[in-house]
Design a protein around this nucleic acid. Sequence first.
DNA 1: TTATATGTTCGATA
DNA 2: TTATCGAACATATA
Length: 262
Amino acid sequence: MPELPEVEIMRRYLEAASLDQEIQAVQFYDELDKIYHSSREELREALVGARFTATERTGKFLFVQISRGGWLHLHFGMSGTLELFRGDELPKYTRLTWDFASGERLAFRDLRKFGVIALTPSPAEYLKAHGIGTDLLEIDFKDFEAALHNRSVAIKTALLDQKHFAGIGNWIADEMLFDCGIHPQHPCGKLTSEHYRCLWEAGRQIVQTAVEADTHYGDFPEHFFVQYRKKGALHPDWPESPVEKLTVGGRGTFIVPAKQRM
DNA sequence: TTATATGTTCGATA
DNA sequence: TTATCGAACATATA
């Protein structure tokens, strides 16, 4: 579930669950070591006996400051999530736990193992090394437009690219394009300034609404496209134009054909 | 059995 | 050198 709003909710959850608690142990449950981008030894050494003291987030990239120095980076991939628990019964798909002196344990769960757990000297350094742009809520319209206006790729592909602005994922991209009545395969650079303006505003509004609803889809407004994001579904504003599925940039993409013409 | 899933990275190609 | 495309990654479920 992790796009910008989901990661923001995770950031708040992690703060509430763990800030300023002593980390008594770190335990590893991914036998492939797939998601540990720092070694087990480095992670243990950096974290055991330390505390988390602050958090930061850019797009889908979460960072946790370590009292002893340095930062921990968390990325949730396609299926990562955090869950607080107690005792020996691990939540399903737990890949790592931080065990606090209080007896509470924080699990990093991740069915598909596309997540990342890594040490880094600072968020800025990590983001620069990975070519990640400004958070979607931070970028101003001028820079947003500049990042899009001279490109030839499909607009949806450009929205999903984290290089210039970060945080948009598959469902938010579809939501933005639906809001603005833009076909996802429309060449990015051929849109008008009004289109870019609409996308910029829609992106901010969608993210803010999703965060306010705790990313619980059931609490989203009825007109949110994500609620009808499946083949054949009928959006209440377009009952005569069933949702169609296509593939754009290798990603499943849903549109209301009558509203989103090329 | 085959396709798909809310993401990123890497190699090939233009 | 830069931009774009497609496959790959690991696992469960329809």
